[in-house]
Amino acid sequence: PREAYIVTIEKGKPGQTVTWYQLRADHPKPDSLISEHPTAQEAMDAKKRYED
């Protein structure tokens, strides 16, 4: 089974940042970016789909 994890990042100019959620996995390479999402819920949904 595949495993993934969610990383929170800040995008934008200082003082005007927006939080994004990255879905990452250690396949095919360590810390590979799988997808980016504007909400934590979307990231969790993507994580479930990826791991299923």
Rank of each mutant, 00 (worst) to 15 (best):
R2L: 12
Y21A: 00
P30R: 11
K47Q: 07
P28Q: 09
S32D: 04
H27P: 03
D31A: 12
A25G: 07
I6G: 00
T17K: 12
A4E: 01
Y50C: 02
D31R: 10
R2F: 11
G15T: 06
R24Y: 15
I9T: 07
D26L: 11
Y5W: 15
K48S: 09
Q16M: 13
A25Y: 04
P1V: 14
E36Q: 05
T19K: 10
P30F: 11
E36T: 07
T19M: 10
V7C: 05
A40C: 10
I9M: 07
Y5Q: 04
A43R: 00
W20P: 00
S35M: 01
V18N: 09
I34Y: 02
Q16Y: 14
P30K: 13
A40S: 08
R24P: 01
K29P: 12
A4N: 02
Y50L: 07
D45P: 00
P1S: 12
H27K: 10
M44V: 11
Y50R: 03
D45V: 09
Y5S: 04
K11Q: 06
A46F: 04
E42H: 06
K47I: 04
M44E: 14
D26V: 09
A43W: 00
Q41C: 07
T8R: 13
H27E: 12
A43E: 00
K48N: 09
K11N: 03
I6N: 00
Q16W: 09
E10Q: 13
P38N: 08
V7P: 00
D31F: 15
E51S: 08
K29L: 13
Q16N: 13
E36Y: 03
I34E: 01
K47W: 06
P38E: 12
D52W: 13
D45S: 09
D45H: 09
I6P: 00
H37D: 01
K47Y: 05
I6W: 02
G15P: 15
E10W: 07
S35L: 00
D45K: 09
R24M: 12
E42I: 05
D31K: 09
E36F: 02
A46D: 02
L23F: 02
T19D: 04
V18R: 13
V18Y: 09
T17M: 14
S35G: 03
R49K: 15
Q41A: 15
L33N: 02
A4V: 12
S35N: 02
K29W: 15
K11T: 07
A43G: 02
K13W: 14
K47G: 02
A25H: 05
H37Y: 08
E10N: 10
K29N: 13
H27N: 11
A46M: 04
Q41W: 12
Q41K: 13
G15H: 07
E10K: 11
A46H: 05
Q22N: 01
E10L: 13
T17A: 10
D52V: 12
D31N: 15
Q41S: 11
E36L: 04
V18P: 02
G12F: 04
H37I: 00
A46Y: 04
A43Y: 00
A40H: 15
S35Y: 01
R2N: 10
I34F: 02
I34N: 01
A40V: 15
K48W: 09
D45M: 12
T19L: 13
W20A: 05
L33K: 03
E36G: 02
Q41N: 09
Y21E: 01
W20H: 06
S35I: 01
L33T: 05
Q22H: 04
I9D: 02
D26E: 07
D52C: 08
P38H: 09
Y50Q: 02
A46G: 03
I34R: 01
P1D: 11
Q22R: 00
Q41Y: 08
A4M: 08
G12K: 06
Q16E: 14
G12N: 05
E51K: 07
H37Q: 01
L23K: 01
T39Q: 03
T39M: 03
P14E: 13
M44F: 13
D52T: 15
I6R: 00
W20S: 06
E3L: 15
V7H: 05
A43K: 00
K47P: 00
V7M: 07
V7S: 06
M44R: 09
I34Q: 04
K11C: 05
M44I: 14
A46S: 05
E51H: 07
K29G: 10
M44H: 12
E42R: 05
H37M: 02
D52M: 15
E51Q: 10
E51I: 09
Q22M: 03
E36R: 01
M44K: 10
